[in-house]
Design a protein around this nucleic acid. Structure first.
Length: 597
RNA sequence: GCGCGGAUGGUCUAGUGGUAGGACCUGAGCCUUCCAAGCUCAUGGCCCGGGUUCAAAUCCCGGUCCGCGCACCA
């Protein structure tokens, strides 16, 4: 976590320019946000447990995402299994595409892609499709060497490494399955049924919040890169020819963009613009992607991402999947490094077409024309009682050719006989034996494969960013203080309730208040230990926005008020107990501000 | 997976070939009429497995985990 070099790459924006990751990870461990899993058994790499505060924060973030991307957009949410059978991943391309052949140099230890080595140094073009023993043979035959140190790689084993966790479905290994490497496939696979729920009307969107698994070679940076993580994904299915996003509603959203052209430029930099302008100037190539960027930005802000440390970065041509026309990431800055929090991709019909090809089902939507179209169609209905005896085994081939010919060249049926060329031989078929006819057909519509726009969010990285961007250090009355400036909407604990001192009467009143607030649906913690300042600091450190203190005025005053203390400013106001729950609930939903009390 | 560095109560850390000390936290009590105060007491630890040794938390080897760099990140 060195400061040099890294922080120079980006202009840090505020008082937290000093790296805080170390301190944050320590706080997260101590206060129950997240920590290494299975610690009692030595820990396991790339797996983290969200503690009591972390699970609540993550849940709140997921709820906020659901409100915005499912409920507010009118999309439907599903919950698919995390394990799916092998054919799903054959179709999706993960079985091949996620599979790397690695070969490790015995001398210098460098790992290289064995298939790339072969392709670069031999005439083989698609080494990835070769079985491993054959790749090993080729390496030995061509005496390929390590690209780093030049050591010979003949007789070095090629390891197959697939980033997917595999398992067996049921007993034995006849039915392999995989833990999904992204939640998206669970949506795509169910498309034929989901489109029924959408009553075959495009556009429609399906969301899913769930776990995905990748057996990363090297998990890093606490919960930034783990082997099990949570995604919140929206697959939005559109008719590419007709559907258009409501760009107007997000046109004025101000965004920081880092387009590919700027990344490639010598002195490129981020661009401050609006969604509307970026589309007008062609910076964002796809309007759907632009729309969801416009939805995402204010949402990120609402859950507490610092907009001075946030940008959308366009994928460079090289990092884009081949089917993606345009792709942007949402990135946040953590100690001078930009990390990817979400990807917004226009995936075309790639996914649905693949599943349509590989499965027996139809991954299309029937699109009705405004007016039914009448077309003339030439058909044949061959007389098999003639063709069979006449041509024997070739009869079926002749039928196929007649059908093809009718579609291709109606004029061929103008004469007394029809001429068929079949494997060099010419056959004359009497016209009346072909059953040729031109019919009028009414076509009500067509089957179209929808295109997919995919906003895909990493929830863990977002939670990490929210914590990191909320981390604050300041001084209160000369004492150092650490607090988390979490948005009330996502803060895991919303209010702490304290009796000012050890006093049965104060404690009894505090108990009643706690019960009231909990009944109002607020997340409440009660604390009567130590002096009042310590209790305030405790809540500051987990980011609890408000604390209520029951003092002697509360039990003496007929109006029975308590103090409400706000976390960031530590300022206090007195509120009547009977208005407390209602007022705090309104603050949490954003309908009321503490300053206005 | 490779290289470098690291691992001591919940957290942060001191330390030596002779079985560990501090600070903070936490709990109990006293005190206390609003911001980590004070006093008393208490709980709690050498990452795991081998080896060397009379003796290993310390030295050696292997592993696990963490951080960083490389590679990887459809």
């Amino acid at each position: 976590m060195s400061e040099d070099g890294q922080s120079a790459a980006t202009e840090s924006t505020d008082e937290t320019s000093e790296p805080t990751s170390g301190k944050l990870v320590e706080l997260a461990k101590r206060r129950g946000y997240f920590f290494q899993s299975s610690g009692a058994y030595g820990g396991v790499g790339g797996f983290y447990t969200f503690g009591p505060q972390g699970a609540a924060l993550k849940g709140n973030v997921e709820d906020a995402w659901r409100d915005r991307f499912a409920v507010a957009e009118g999309n439907m949410e599903i919950d698919a299994p995390t394990i799916m059978p092998e054919p799903v991943f054959e179709a999706s391309g993960h079985l091949d595409g996620f599979d790397d052949m690695l070969i490790e140099c015995p001398d210098c230890g460098t790992s290289s892609r064995a298939d790339h080595l072969v392709e670069d140094n031999t005439d083989y073009e698609d080494a990835e499709s070769l079985p491993i023993p054959e790749v090993e043979e080729v390496i030995a035959e061509y005496e390929l060497v390590c690209p780093e140190c030049g050591a010979g790689l003949a007789d070095v084993a090629v390891e197959n490494f697939n980033l997917m966790f595999d398992t067996n479905i049921g007993p034995g290994d006849a039915d392999p399955g995989y833990l999904r490497p992204e939640t998206a496939q669970g949506i795509f696979v169910e498309f034929p049924r989901l489109k029924e729920y959408a009553r075959n009307q495009l556009p429609f969107g399906v969301t899913q919040i769930g776990r995905a698994y990748r057996n990363e070679i090297s998990p890093r940076r606490s919960i930034i890169r783990t082997r099990e993580f949570t995604q919140a994904e929206l697959e939005y299915f559109v008719d590419p020819e007709e559907d258009e996003p409501d760009l107007e509603s997000v046109a004025d959203v101000a965004v920081t963009l880092y387009p590919a052209s700027e990344q490639n430029a010598e002195d490129g930099s981020e661009i401050e613009t609006t969604i509307g302008e970026a589309v007008a100037e062609g910076i964002i190539g796809d309007e759907w992607v632009a729309y969801f960027l416009g939805v995402a930005k204010p949402w990120y802000e609402s859950v507490g991402v610092d907009m001075d440390r946030f940008r959308f970065r366009q994928h460079l041509a090289g990092e884009r999947a081949h089917y993606a026309a345009d792709c942007w990431d949402a990135e946040s800055e953590i100690d001078g490094n930009w990390i990817e929090m979400a990807g917004f991709a226009y995936r075309g019909d790639y996914d649905l077409s693949k599943h349509g090809d590989h499965s027996g089902d139809r991954f299309t939507v029937f699109k009705q024309y405004d007016e039914p179209q009448t077309v003339e169609r030439a058909t044949v209905d061959p007389d098999m009682s003639y063709l069979g005896p006449e041509f024997g085994g070739a009869a079926q081939a002749i039928v196929d050719e007649l059908e093809a010919l009718a579609a291709r060249d109606r004029d061929a049926f103008d004469g007394e006989t029809v001429t068929i060329d079949l494997e060099g031989e010419t056959h004359e078929i009497p016209l009346e034996k072909t059953g040729f006819a031109v019919e009028e057909e009414t076509i009500a519509g067509e089957h179209v494969t929808p295109h997919v726009v995919e906003p895909s969010f990493g929830v863990d990285r977002l939670v990490y960013t929210v914590l990191h961007h909320a981390y604050r250090e300041d001084e209160v009355d000369g004492e150092e203080r650490t607090y988390l400036d979490l948005e009330p909407e996502v803060a895991p604990t919303f209010v702490g309730v304290f009796p000012l001192q050890n006093d049965a009467e104060l404690e009894a009143t505090a108990d009643e208040i706690v019960a009231d607030l909990r009944e109002a649906g607020l997340s409440v913690t009660e604390d009567d230990s130590g002096n009042i300042g310590r209790r305030y600091r405790r809540q500051d450190e987990v980011g609890t926005p408000f604390c209520v203190t029951v003092d002697y005025e509360t039990i003496e005053n007929p109006e029975t008020t308590v103090t409400v203390r706000e976390r960031d400013t530590t300022s206090q106001k007195r509120l009547p107990i009977d208005e407390l729950a209602e007022t705090l609930a309104a603050i949490r939903t954003g309908d009321l501000a503490f300053e206005d009390l």
